[in-house]
Design a protein around this nucleic acid. Sequence first.
DNA 1: CGAATTCTATATCGATCGCTAGAAAACGTG
DNA 2: CACGTTTTCTAGCGATCGATATAGAATTCG
Lengths: 198, 198
Amino acid sequence: MSTTRRGRPRGYDRAAALEQALVLFWDRGYEATSIAELTAAMGMGAPSLYAAFGSKRQLFDEVVRSYGRTYHAFMARALVEEPTLRRGVERLLREAASEYTRPDRPPGCLVISAAVNCSSPDVEQALRTLRASDVKAFEHLIKSATSAGELPSDTDPHSLALFTSVTLQGMAQQARDGATRTELEAVAALALTSWPWT
Amino acid sequence: MSTTRRGRPRGYDRAAALEQALVLFWDRGYEATSIAELTAAMGMGAPSLYAAFGSKRQLFDEVVRSYGRTYHAFMARALVEEPTLRRGVERLLREAASEYTRPDRPPGCLVISAAVNCSSPDVEQALRTLRASDVKAFEHLIKSATSAGELPSDTDPHSLALFTSVTLQGMAQQARDGATRTELEAVAALALTSWPWT
DNA sequence: CGAATTCTATATCGATCGCTAGAAAACGTG
DNA sequence: CACGTTTTCTAGCGATCGATATAGAATTCG
């Protein structure tokens, strides 16, 4: 295997092109983003796009994976790096208010908003599954924290996990509706008051 | 003006056809619902649809108005018919859990979910405006209740209104993701604990 | 150099989109 | 009956969708 590849060199940076597609999908959603818009933003012709990413659907899947690794990772980080679950959720909600309204990115969350009204049910289901796994992860953490005495023993993990997801999804929607970081931070603070104390 | 109309009688019931369109738009969203699906569900040909409703966009507008009059009215009713704002919101959230998960209707809320990823910005903006006016209405009621001493004087009406909308929007999203009535009722109860006491 | 390889540019493909023209069908009225 | 009016049916409009066939351009290897 030589380091130099044969044939005509590609005229684009694959990672940069993927990032452009990510931003576009994030902003407009899966279905409302056309191949024409994608090729224009990614700086390549349609055949190059299909050669590099397979299909619109496969490109979107790769975008979702990349999104999870970069823009969605702050959630797991907040939950892991804080000493208590409550502190973790507090930071998560506060950071979500910031992440969902950053001026250099599309508002809201790709996983929540990019495939809501989707003609192809499998794309919609793919993001649905991601959201469901997030709820499950919340529920698991809450259950552990309850067992550890960190939360009251009468805490309902499933309901509290769902409530947290509801808050995040609502915040993401409101961000797309134009809510500011400050507004969402106030919402996050209010939501946190629903969390039980030890 | 005679009671019998001249010409060939129409072979459909306009109100029933509008209701079928409403259900379809509610279920699939504005853009993902095609004219072909609409005509099939409404029991009429495309020319009849355009003669009766103008265009897909005008049909959707009429659907949205009808939706507001019927399926969205429980909110204003709950807020008006209860003696205090807190009781009103409590009932509103509880009823939303029920309304968003009724087995005989599409899940969630048309105003919240029918135009999220929309190619035509004006349709998306139309529902956005409706949502914003709901937030404003909340804020107004909270402000009045605070002035009347029904809520603590340090209550922030804007944040509390936004939080309530976030809860509703998140609940609607979760309903579309498969959450049950019981689950959403628990979420609503949790959200209500963020409301300040007198 | 020529051959093999790899990518790019043009020009579509069939399908579907929202929408409509034109003719035929079904009614009340003379 | 014929006539005007209204609706329905059939067929198809131009545009756009995702995806591709084909030919040419740009590189490495022999």
